[in-house]
Amino acid sequence: METGFLQEQKVLEGDLNSENSHQNSVDFLMNWFRKQSIFVLAYGTGCGAIEMPPTFTSRYDAERLGIRGAATPRQADVIIVSGYCSYKTLRRIIRTYEQMSNPKYLLALGSCTVNGGMYWDSYNTIKKLEDYLPVDMYVNGCMPRPESILEGFIALQKEIGEGKASSWQKYEENYEFYRKNQEAVLGKKVEPSYEADWYLYEGGL
């Protein structure tokens, strides 16, 4: 097996007969870098967010796979939609997702994002996340344990490495479809307002 610079040389020349032949060597390298360092937005919705701290801290230690947290959406590569997603949350998720820079990936946790889960007859919870935002990887379970989350991340890394995870391109290409679905449940004004009326109304607390 070739190692060191021989391996690199092989990568740079590109192997047209391999299964990754649709990628040129630059693409391959870029995807390889991307998959080795995944910054996950510190954002949680629903109950699945409780599984994320053990995933990222010493017990399951996702950092050994190059997965670690990012503070703001502009710095993040991956957003995790961890659990049920009400209309109100969906607004915030859309805003956050659109703020993230390309390439960006979306990982959906739990059965609620797949088909509504136990909220299947809730008036205020969406049933299929992929109608509103493009999903790269679903991790099912209620709730998925940190092992499953890591498995989902590894599958996502594999897809990134092969150049198959391209949901952000899908979102740009089919923006009308997504926007139409978003407006169907959220009304014409999809973006949330920044008004903090919880504690700052006239004559408030």
């Binding site: 797949v114 509504g116 007859d121 008036y123």
Partner: peptide
């Protein structure tokens, strides 16, 4: 208002949302 009993949750969901 959603907690009034005349509000049929299941009918609302079937009319407004799509299931997989």
């Amino acid at each position: 208002p959603p907690l009034r009993r005349e509000f049929d949750t299941l009918e609302f969901v079937n009319n407004h949302l799509t299931f997989r």
